[in-house]
Amino acid sequence: MTNEDEARAARLMTLAQHGDQAAYAELLAMLTTLATRFVRRRLGSAHWVDDVVQETLMSVHRARHTWRPDRPFGPWFSAILTHREIDVYRRERRVRLREHVEEALEAVAPAAPVETHDDGVVDMAAVRAALASLPPRQRDIVAGLKLREESVKHLANRHQMSESAVKVMAHRGYRRLRAILGGQAERK
């Protein structure tokens, strides 16, 4: 952050703290540019750059009462940005790890027995009943990805979530479905 950026951000944040919404919008737009540049320089074109930027903006919003006009703006903003970058990176790593585990599990146990009849046809009634037991948002995400073939990005936009959060919710949904359908199979 240059001295000019620092002075401008401090001035805009002071105005924003007094309730000036135009100044706040200008500040957030400026921080979006700064954060995108910073994260791209460190992560290159990783697909979660936008997640880091958006989570940083939300954290700035939640923490804006902790910045005081007598303190420099740069270190305050950098601390938030760096932490959010680490958080998103760790979450992405967990999602990737989970995806690998899920793929490995599917390779070992290709199909839960309840999902097919003896003739190999998927028992959609059982799947739909299991789907109905999921919370509404999770149900929509799982159904969107697996039944309606919607993209993660599309679902993320619709639910106003990050793409990583959609993936995490979908994987939790799959696990729950597997548990429900597996339990039914055992009872049969």
Binding site: A16, Q17, H18, G19, Q21, Y24, A25, L28, A29, T32, L57, M58, H61, R64, H65, T66, W67, R68, P69
Partner: peptide, 13 residues
């Protein structure tokens, strides 16, 4: 940004 700005009232540091 639009949604955050609409939620931004004056605050005391």
């Amino acid at each position: 940004i639009v949604s955050l700005v609409s939620d931004a009232a004056a605050i005391t540091p």
